[in-house]
């Protein structure tokens, strides 16, 4: 079962590794990220931040889609973290089982639209989010577990 799919540009960091994982009672974290899946240093850093007692899998987006659709992740309380909205878009388009998208944090850059104090999107990313919403996906901003969910 997928307990949460989250966009967070910091991937597995304090809020994600400890607050969210514990809050969701997730027992498996999937970091779906093309760069990290092929970069040993990035992988090591992510693995070091892994909360105890939780399985951590790092895969690129394509292999993440294949793995989830194959059913091998069904036995887990799976918490998926992606770095960008574009990655989330690809993942959700490829996986029917994902019905919700949590926008946790994206990098601030000049010219981006602000959806919350921590989420900033380009016009292209906004289009992708709108497309997901029209597909019936619940898309909301929520940085930490005790924040209220805010639909976009």
């Amino acid at each position: 079962m997928i307990v949460l799919t989250r966009v967070d540009h910091r991937l597995l960091h304090g809020q994600v590794a400890f607050s969210w994982t514990s809050h969701l009672s997730a027992n498996c974290i999937l970091v779906a990220n093309d760069a990290a899946s092929s970069d040993q240093t990035k992988k090591t850093i992510i693995k070091l931040g892994k909360p105890s007692g939780v399985k951590l899998v790092i895969k690129n987006i394509d292999n993440s889609i294949k793995a989830i659709n194959s059913g091998v992740t069904d036995k887990y309380n799976l918490f998926i973290v992606v770095e960008t909205i574009d990655a989330a878009y690809k993942l959700i388009k490829g996986v029917d089982a994902i019905k919700e998208l949590n926008l946790g944090g994206t990098k601030f850059e000049e010219g981006k639209e602000s959806l919350s104090s921590a989420v900033f999107v380009t016009p292209d990313e906004k289009k992708e989010l709108d497309d997901l919403v029209s597909d019936g996906i619940k898309v909301y901003t929520q940085q930490v577990p005790t924040d209220k969910k805010k639909d976009i």
Binding site: C28, T44, K47, L48, P51, S52, V57, V72, T73, Y76
Partner: peptide, 22 residues
């Protein structure tokens, strides 16, 4: 659990090489 998170990272990274899969 919290005791396990107090670590000497230089040593810890040497133990990390296991690839996990589903």
């Amino acid at each position: 659990n919290s005791k396990e998170s107090i670590q000497f990272c230089n040593e810890s990274i040497k133990r990390i090489n296991k690839e996990e899969d589903f």
